[in-house]
Write a protein that binds this DNA or RNA. Structure first.
Lengths: 193, 193
DNA sequence: CTCGGGTGAGACAATCTTGTATCGTTCGAG
DNA sequence: CTCGAACGATACAAGATTGTCTCACCCGAG
């Protein structure tokens, strides 16, 4: 028997590679049979929603440590942010599929869950802005979305074989925080220091 | 009669919202009938590949101005980079779907086109690294992927209604270049300047 | 050993999607 | 006006997918 988490993760993995994979393809990708899949989840739609629920749960688990009251100083915020990014990394492929499927998107419960998570994350990011650790001139929503964009890009880079799984944690974090512009930039036209 | 570009853009828009949309749904989303759609593209697969070809073409159009020999100085590079990002913005939703669909991904011609574009972009980014305008400690592939991740995140933010279309150009550019960390950052624990 | 739960394989009808064809209509060029 | 190209609507068969069912098998608990 396959563990439920493994099953859902496997389904998410297959679906991430092909959003319209059939039940047969999903079952084959997991290494089980369509009969078992149908016994566990009455409907393909039910399976997709179960994957969505798991995505919500996993991200909730990442967001839980963000106890705002205790992160009132800049150093603690930095640590929490770094841990958040690293924790979110494996959730990227789960969300990458979930947040793009029409079946899932149409589910009010899923939308509510995402909204709740967004608010939670936004509060954390706004705290970072107040602490001076995140740029205050950027909309918190954009900060949150851009982080997911980088996570997604990293997952895609790994899937395409252009990036090594070991390096993407550092890459996402450094790009998210510092961007791709070199830190020391002499004024244009000035002689080299 | 619907212009072919409009038709493909409309199809891409519908497919971006639902990767497994049927021909009926795509036709309805564009505002035409399934009969017309079938007349223009013999197969659903043919339609998807046409969308992919258009995505390639549009991005090629964005990459064309990157005449490397003429961008040998830092200022010209900066200008070209900014123009590239802005030009790529409307292509994000085209690619967002295309690069994730199994039907399209299986097409060798599409993969070859993407590879060619990647090499072209990578050469431009490496030039930026040599000119000192992009961080040399980041893999060029990651710089390229992260830019697409930000473009995709911006498109999603607009689609979700959390970002205004007018602001995403600036947001993507500033996040891409400078990240979300405030520029002036005193060493941790040091007294404020 | 015996038994029962979980499994894989396969059959089956119902439904959806696709590709093709036909009809009448619209609209613009000549 | 006339005509032809393109259109929307509709019907149809072929194929794929889904949900349900049955059957035989494995394997661990008792």
């Amino acid at each position: 028997m396959v563990n439920e988490e493994e099953l859902l993760d496997g389904a998410a993995r297959v679906l991430a590679g092909d959003h319209s994979a059939s039940m047969v393809q999903i079952a084959a990708g997991i290494g089980t049979s369509r009969a078992t899949l149908s016994r566990r989840y009455a409907t393909r739609e039910a399976l997709l929603k179960a994957v969505a629920v798991r995505a919500i749960e996993v991200v909730d688990g990442c967001l839980a440590p963000l106890d705002l009251a205790q992160n009132a100083d800049a150093d603690a915020f930095d640590t929490a942010l770094e841990e958040l990014v690293v924790a979110l990394m494996p959730a990227a492929h789960l969300y990458g599929f979930t947040s793009r499927d029409a079946t899932v998107l149409a589910d009010p419960a899923f939308r509510a869950g995402v909204d709740r998570q967004d608010q939670r994350a936004l509060a954390f990011l706004v705290l970072g802005q107040r602490l001076g650790r995140l740029r205050a001139d950027l909309p918190p929503y954009w900060i949150w979305y851009s982080l997911w964009g980088l996570l997604d890009a990293a997952a895609e880079g790994v899937r395409d074989g252009h990036l090594a799984p070991r390096q993407i944690g550092h890459l996402v974090l450094t790009s998210f925080l510092s961007g791709t512009r070199p830190l020391a930039r002499p004024p244009a036209g000035a002689p080299a220091p």
